[in-house]
Design a binder for these strands. Structure first.
Lengths: 262, 262
DNA sequence: AAAAAGTTCAAACGAGCGTTTGAAACAAGC
DNA sequence: GCTTGTTTCAAACGCTCGTTTGAACTTTTT
């Protein structure tokens, strides 16, 4: 009854970072768990797939292991056998896709920077480096990439401490790199303001990806566009780029914003 | 063992909408439940206060009625006696503060419009109408307004269907009014684009209010500012105003954003 | 082919959940 | 002061939860 060997997959990110301007950035989406031709690791993958979908649909607390294992067509005890606990299963669902995505983001940013030849990047370019790997997942219909983006957006707002700590850990490196890039792109902006705006960017991104269809509909977003993550990101990106470039307000300006009297 | 009489409070919003430019907008934050001098309705209020804090801290599913009633210092059965069910208690927590806040928002918007004398409002003005009532709650330290804003932000991302439907219902009217105002303020923008951008504004607002402290810290937001909702809103507002005014991209522009090759 | 290691399975454990019950305590009206 | 209606209380109900168990089955190693 020992735990199975943990399979660590090498994350392969092709970043043509040296020398010439990259004309194409190749990005690995996620590694398939195929050590052997057939169904080795099949149970683990089936549990992960079912968990990803059900956690997305109902949240962590409201999703029982019985629901997951039934949907996956495996025995209840398999979840604890392969992942140890429900919390560890939840984290496994995330690391499977989040690590590659964030690595892709950083590799893409590095490739852009290498291509820029020392010049600071535009905000649009940096936002692209954040969004393109997410878009890869959104476009990934065979595997559950679409589900995962929603799950990710919702996990951001989940109050469970272990989720918050886990996400902070997973994001720390990527956020640091992008903060530095934005700071270079916006040299007139105080570093503190850059930090806030990066926070707003991450927030708008995760919220809109997680967004309730109902709330989209009362904003009168067309029903056929509600599920279209690609369209969403293409509209969100210019919105955020403009926000990032907003002139920094003086204390006087800020006072004026929220004074209730003239 | 009959249900107690539901006390419906009149929401009083003073909107000096007629004629002259309003120099001061008076806003009722929330009515106290004091039918009688002393502790009538005290049990209900204690349960609501405890529920507000605990739902904020742990989420709906992870907060048990036993936890709430113990924190409130009342008997377990009191929750079901006064509110019927856990779901109805949750909704009661929201209506207590959300209805007044959204009414204040609409009244403030109407007052601004009346003062503008037919001219379209600026984006900043409209955003102020959204943010000031929220700021009132954030500044409200005696009552649990601060907790409530976080709870609200997190509820937006909660997957539970009854929560999503409830919030959609609560927000429908207010969103409709503000969409119309933004459409007037941004006449060059297609109505569809206005809907999307309003959605982004609501998203950024709720996410940043709900935001995990940990995620704020890895964005290198100063620890002493993490809990400062007022500072947050003052920085968020110019960011969003700039985003709202962003030029609308052509199909060509959008293509360029996410193409992986030049 | 035997032994070892890894994996699946049905069943159960103890704990916590939302809700209900019926009696006790309290308040107001006559 | 008794009645009536409201509120509180301790206790329990039925159910689902995450996790554990030990035997059966399968795969790999020797």
């Amino acid at each position: 009854m020992s735990q199975p060997v943990v399979r660590r997959l090498p994350v392969e990110v092709v970043s043509s970072s040296a020398g010439a301007v990259p004309t194409t950035i190749a990005i690995s989406v996620v590694g398939k768990l195929t050590d052997k031709p057939a169904d080795v690791g099949d149970t683990k993958r089936r549990i992960l797939d079912a968990a990803e979908e059900l956690f997305m649909e109902h949240g962590f607390e409201a999703t029982s292991l019985r629901l997951i294992t039934t949907a996956a067509g495996v025995n209840l005890a398999a979840a604890n056998y392969h992942f140890g606990s429900k919390e560890e299963l939840f984290q496994a669902v995330f690391t499977r896709r989040l690590d590659p995505m964030n690595n892709d983001r950083m590799a893409l940013l590095a490739a852009y920077e290498a291509a820029a030849d020392g010049e600071p990047l535009t905000c649009e370019r940096i936002i692209s480096a954040m969004f393109i790997p997410a878009l890869k997942l959104a476009r990934d219909h065979e595997q559950g990439g679409k589900n995962f983006l929603r799950l990710l957006g919702r996990a951001y707002a989940d109050p469970a401490p272990f989720i918050r700590e886990f996400l902070s850990r997973q994001y720390a490196e990527m956020i640091g790199r992008f903060r530095a890039a934005f700071a270079e792109a916006l040299p007139h902006l105080p570093r503190e303001e850059v930090s806030w705006r990066l926070h707003f960017v991450m927030g708008a991104l995760s919220y809109t990806l997680a967004g309730s269809d109902g709330l989209k509909l009362i904003s009168q977003i067309r029903p056929e566009d509600v599920d279209n993550d690609e369209l969403l990101l293409k509209r969100l990106a210019p919105f955020l780029a403009a926000g990032l470039r907003a002139p920094v307000g003086t204390a006087q300006d800020q006072q004026q914003w929220f004074s209730e009297s003239d």
